[in-house]
Design a protein around this nucleic acid. Structure first.
Length: 573
DNA sequence: GCCGTTTTCGGCCCGACTGTTTTCAGTCG
């Protein structure tokens, strides 16, 4: 059974939890967590690095000791250190740590004083009233824990970015209407455009923190107030989304925005740089002794540690600080750079609008061209196109191109990649098209080897141009199919193909890490809406967010090209 | 356990809020 990066990271995180419960050296605990994060965000499999004899200590946060442990886990699939910890400390205690209000100290007290070793033990002890008498616990904690157990709050719930936007953006607008409120910014992972967010951080500048907090907790979608203070407050909305409000003064705005945008590990790295320069960086500013030396703008915070401005999407401590120091930050692609969209459906299959309506909607959003890509015949559910209907659609596109102003329609198809790597339509039917998006819509469960070969074979078809939603995942619903993305990207380069970054909020596929890999390999990425209605072109902004997280510049994105340049690239194959 | 503009030992980010407390520990972000 192959060991993936996520498996190694999970083992390190569990070790960190257990060491923390046993009150081990907190810096040692941190080392495990840092290493876990480092491995998780790696673009390549650790096992592949090891096979090639790479030195793992070159990875950030991995020293000689952990490199050895990683090698052991990669070889055997398990960790002797973790096994040893389990002998002393039950594994289920890490579950307790996930409950709100329970950290390592309290879990340790529950275990050592009350012999609680599982969620079930905890429930029984709470109901028997034994927990409240423990030092550090009380009646309120007891109630809170019982509630958490009932609502299964132990499970982490994350919201897709587009869903979070639906709740957060109106709330921000509501806060802006308050008198005395200056800026309102949604910070946190939302601002970094992560594909899902755990909670929302709203940053506000205002004269009176008390008044803003009052208005905040009075918002009519608030279900529960978790905490309320003059600078910080937290509520849970009826949707279950947690929102944190932070109020700061104008002079602190930049420092606070930087701090509350995160990520946490990016912030720590920047603070350490401050420390090395004799500066203290917190959410109120940058200070030398008692004197404020920066913090009104984010740029001033970066400047204080001799860095240029780093875009929020890059702030994951995945090399952006190093790149900034060397003046090698990418100039990230922007929504306005997109000249066209190469994935859209119509009424002919499972879309909701005609070709003409889709064309006009794309034009109204400022696009110069739109590729029509309905499904192919295998998708009978979607009434997929056979060669005859595809040809008829081509004629319709020719007629519209002759009449429509300000937009060029391109003839395409989203053709199914069959189990053996053949395409769902004959070459003859594909030959008359401007481009071909090929996608996997079936047989997700193939082995990694067969799935990879299936896709590689499909890309070898002379008409194949873009690999649609390359990993096949649906965020929060269905994981990616097993596939060797490194080989797929190499294959795309060798075959002269492109990869799609599907902008649909449920897909956002390519992932950020894979975008970076494509960029490094010189494979262009097409940021496509996969629109099924005229409204769906709005989704492109989420695709661009993901592209920016993947370090993509304008030139790395296929559909920033003009129609003419695009045609040149499409026919090169 | 990692790391080096404080380089191979001695550091390791920083502050707010809550609850259980009489001055603070624990948790959280």
């Amino acid at each position: 059974m192959p060991v993936h990066n996520a498996d190694i990271a999970a083992i390190f995180d569990e070790i960190a939890d257990l060491l923390e419960i046993e009150s081990e050296n907190p810096f040692r605990v941190r080392a495990y967590r840092t290493a876990a994060q480092s491995i998780r965000s790696l673009g390549r499999e650790v096992t592949a690095l090891l096979d090639q004899g790479e030195d793992l200590t070159r990875l950030p946060g991995i020293g000689k000791d952990l490199a050895g442990k990683i090698a052991d886990i990669a070889r055997s699939g398990h960790s002797e250190d973790l096994d040893a910890l389990h002998k002393k400390t039950p594994a289920a205690l890490t579950e307790l740590m996930k409950l709100p209000g329970l950290g390592p100290k309290r879990v340790s007290a529950l275990y050592h004083d009350l012999k609680i070793r599982s969620l079930d033990d905890l429930r029984k002890a709470l109901e028997a009233g034994r927990v409240r008498d423990l030092s550090g616990f009380g009646a309120k904690t007891e109630v809170r824990l019982l509630e958490a157990l009932r609502s299964e709050a132990g499970e982490e719930r994350r919201f897709k970015l587009a869903v979070a936007a639906q709740y957060a953006e109106p709330l921000a607008a509501y806060l802006e209407k308050q008198k005395g409120v200056g800026s309102v910014v949604i910070a946190g992972s939302f601002r970094r455009r992560r594909e899902t967010v755990g909670d929302i951080d709203i940053l506000v500048t205002a004269r009176s923190g008390r008044e803003v907090a009052e208005r905040f907790v009075g918002y009519d979608e608030v279900d529960r107030v978790v905490s309320k203070g003059t600078t910080r407050s937290t509520v849970i909305l009826r949707s279950g989304l947690q929102v944190d409000l932070r109020v700061v003064s104008k002079v602190s705005f930049g420092a606070a925005l930087h701090y509350f945008t995160g990520s946490k590990s990016h912030n720590i790295a920047v603070r350490r740089m401050g420390q090395q320069r004799g500066l203290k960086i917190n959410e109120y500013g940058v200070f030398r002794d008692e004197e404020r030396v920066a913090g009104k703008t984010e740029a001033s915070v970066f400047e204080s540690v001799d860095l240029p401005f780093i875009e929020p999407e890059l702030r994951e401590n995945r090399g952006e600080i190093e790149a900034a120091r060397k003046g090698r930050l990418p100039e990230l692609v922007e929504l306005d750079d997109l000249r066209g969209d190469l994935h859209a459906h119509t009424k002919a299959t499972d879309g909701h609008a005609s070709v003409r309506e889709m064309a006009e909607a794309a034009r109204d959003r400022g696009l110069d061209y739109l590729g029509i890509t309905d499904h192919s015949r295998r998708l009978t559910m979607a009434h997929g196109l056979d060669p005859k209907r595809l040809a008829a659609q081509g004629e319709e596109i020719d007629r519209l191109n002759a009449r429509l102003e300000g937009i060029t329609l391109l003839k395409g198809i989203e053709v199914d990649i069959l189990e053996d790597g053949r395409l769902d339509l004959p070459d003859k039917a594909l030959a008359g098209l401007d481009f071909v998006v090929g996608s996997v819509h079936s047989k997700f469960e193939l082995s990694r080897k067969r799935q990879t070969e299936r896709i590689l074979r499909a890309m070898d078809n002379p008409h194949f141009t873009i690999l649609g939603h390359p990993s096949g995942r649906l965020i929060g619903e269905r994981g990616a199919y097993e596939v060797d993305m490194e080989r797929v990207i190499q294959g795309a380069r060798d075959a002269g193909c492109f990869l799609e970054l599907n902008a649909h909020p449920e897909r956002l596929d390519l992932t950020d890490v894979h975008c970076q890999m494509a960029r490094d390999a010189g494979v262009l990425v097409s940021v496509n809406s996969d629109a099924h209605s005229t409204m769906d072109f709005d989704l492109l902004r989420f695709g661009i967010g993901q592209a920016r997280r993947g370090w993509l510049e304008k030139d790395d994105v296929l559909n920033t090209r003009s129609v003419k340049a695009l045609r040149g690239l499409l026919t090169k194959k």
